[in-house]
């Protein structure tokens, strides 16, 4: 049972991570900075609960805000570069953040032990959940409540004019400008929102694993973040969720019996899916069919 709950927790955090990249991808920006924002959220939230004794929710929100603020700062220079150059620039950001935490020591004595981040050793003893008597089930429910909240907010945003404007910028920047859209405001907002969601994912991640270190926030994580919405399709947030379940649930856990051969099949299956469903697992047509099945009218 605990195995499945643990899997649910991983999926929850990765869903948030994927959604953070989804928002940014809607505006046509491919960002590998999401792992960096996640690291910032993780360290900030964990330091607040462990070192300053903040309650969890407040610490998570603070982590998300700091990550969002950093994303806003990254958003401005990112406006000047497009496509591959943006990928490289955001990748550099993730690396900078990772190396910062590799060298970051800030420990204080707590009784007989010292707590806090310690460079390459990482940040151990983030024991908010066990100290407050949360079971694995509680944690899984908490994580998915946060995921549900973020999904509801994004789903609503997606159907609003704001969603249409984000997609318009992603499709054609010149036409969007010519409709009076302020590209700077839209792209930086998307980056900020994405950074905040990634920060939230980081804060939750830090607390359920109880131990974080810089190797948890590598380019591999950043690649996963953009892989989910790309594989799932950008027509709806549910594509991202479907992709997380597919990759984390089916490919990574379901193929564990293959041992060392798993990674090979993992890659091959992704290539296969991208070929069979080039615009994602849930593309516009699938969504239209689903909508018809459930008899819903488009607003």
């Amino acid at each position: 049972m605990d195995f499945y709950l643990g899997l649910l927790q991983i999926m929850g955090v990765h869903t948030l991570l994927g959604l953070s990249a989804y928002v940014v991808l809607l505006t046509g920006q491919v960002s590998l900075a999401q792992a960096g924002f996640m690291a910032i959220g993780a360290y900030v939230a964990a330091m607040l609960t462990v070192l300053s004794g903040w309650p969890l929710i407040a610490a998570l929100i603070a982590g998300a805000l700091v990550a969002g603020f950093m994303a806003c700062l990254v958003g401005f220079p990112a406006l000047r570069v497009h496509g591959l150059m943006l990928v490289v620039a955001t990748l550099a950001f993730t690396e900078i953040v990772r190396l910062f935490f590799f060298n970051f020591d800030y420990q204080i004595a707590r009784g007989s032990i010292r707590v806090g981040p310690l460079g390459g050793e990482g940040f151990r003893q983030i024991r908010y959940f066990p100290e407050n008597g949360w079971t694995t089930l509680h944690v899984a429910i908490f994580i998915w409540s946060v995921v549900a909240l973020v999904m509801a907010a994004l789903w609503w945003m997606d159907r609003s004019r704001a969603g249409a404007v984000l997609r318009a910028v992603g499709e054609d920047e010149i036409a969007a400008q010519s409709c009076g859209i302020n590209l700077t405001a839209v792209k930086v907002s998307a980056m900020t929102a994405g950074g905040a969601i990634a920060g939230l994912a980081g804060g939750i991640y830090a607390h359920y694993t109880t131990h974080i270190e810089q190797t948890n926030f590598t380019i591999m994580v950043a690649t996963f973040a953009i892989a989910y919405p790309i594989l799932g399709g950008l027509s709806s947030i549910f594509g991202t969720v479907a992709a997380v379940v597919f990759i984390q649930g089916f490919l990574i856990e379901g193929l564990r019996f293959l041992g060392d051969w798993r990674n090979l099949l993992f890659g091959a299956l992704i290539v296969l899916v991208m070929n069979i469903r080039p615009s994602g697992l849930l593309d516009a047509r699938t969504m239209a069919t689903l909508r018809r099945l459930f008899g819903r009218r488009e607003g």
């Binding site: 997609r167 318009a168 499709e171 036409a175 409709c179 859209i181 516009a284 488009e298």
Partner: peptide, 26 residues
């Protein structure tokens, strides 16, 4: 000021309604 383009530049993956919704914002 509003304009149209010599080579049509619509937001193709947006619905007709959404295309107008975006522009109505200004």
């Amino acid at each position: 000021i509003a304009r149209t383009f010599q080579n049509i530049r619509l937001f193709g993956q947006l619905t007709v309604w959404q295309n107008l919704w975006v522009a109505e914002n200004s």
